[in-house]
């Protein structure tokens, strides 16, 4: 099924420009890997990027241009590099008709997580709430696994926070978010998500804040632990 909720175009632009925090870029990549509409928007934002890159030779003073100009031997160096290069482009393997086993781990995360969300070492945070923390070089990235029929406290987001549903679904004031949907809320929008009944809801959640002060989880835990 096609996703109903997509990342904001400001996020797609920054993703195309390579300017998102690592954590948020990962969530966007996971959505984009399956959403043709967003792939088109990203490709367009990349066209803008290459246009700006191509025009990135500003008027320069002599002094500045020495900084920007390549070293005098750069051209010889690259020729030497390609002369000694023995790289051979691998033959493209034509996809066979054999269907791979379906996986709800997004393609960009499969090198890290494998193909099964159920085999991860989930850590219990509170009744009905488990998490799995993923590495990110900036911001925080985590999987949350929320039991069916769980209602979360009303909260808003002070920083950037982007959520991708991988399995199950939840509802809030914005509607229903199912697998493949992204919540890329403007900060300060208050909402109260609740998971649907039937199965666990597994979400991938990124923030741009450092781990200690971040995001949804501490706030989620507040009612449990009086943090």
């Amino acid at each position: 099924m096609k996703p109903q909720h997509h990342p904001d175009s400001s996020s797609l632009m920054s993703y195309a420009a390579g300017s998102l925090p690592d954590s948020i870029a990962t969530v966007i990549a996971c959505h984009v890997s399956t959403c043709e509409q967003c792939q088109r928007n990203v490709a367009e934002a990349e066209q803008l990027g290459r246009f700006l890159m191509e025009s990135s030779l500003p008027e320069q003073s002599e002094e500045e241009s020495q900084h920007i100009d390549l070293a005098p031997n750069a051209r010889d160096d690259i020729l030497a590099l390609i002369d000694s290069d023995e790289y051979v482009e691998p033959q493209v393997v034509v996809e066979s008709d054999v269907q791979e086993a379906p996986s709800d781990v997004p393609l960009p995360l499969q090198p890290l997580l494998g193909k099964s969300l159920d085999n991860l070492l989930w850590k219990s945070m509170a009744p009905g709430l488990k998490q799995f923390v993923l590495p990110a070089t900036s911001g925080t990235l985590r999987l949350l696994r929320i039991a069916p029929g769980t209602s979360m406290p009303i909260h808003s987001h002070t920083g950037s926070e982007v959520t991708l549903v991988l399995r199950g679904s939840y509802y809030d004031e914005m509607g229903r978010f199912g697998a493949g949907d992204v919540a890329d809320l403007d900060p300060e929008v208050e909402h109260q998500p609740a998971t649907a009944t039937g199965e666990d809801c597994i979400c991938l959640i990124a923030t741009d804040a450092p781990l200690k002060f971040s995001g949804l989880v501490p706030r989620l835990l507040q009612p449990f632990f009086q943090l």
């Binding site: 990549a29 890997s33 792939q39 088109r40």
Partner: peptide, 11 residues
């Protein structure tokens, strides 16, 4: 993770 995977669909 692979942030910019080669996609089968390239518009």
């Amino acid at each position: 993770t692979d942030l910019y995977p080669d996609l089968s669909f390239q518009p």
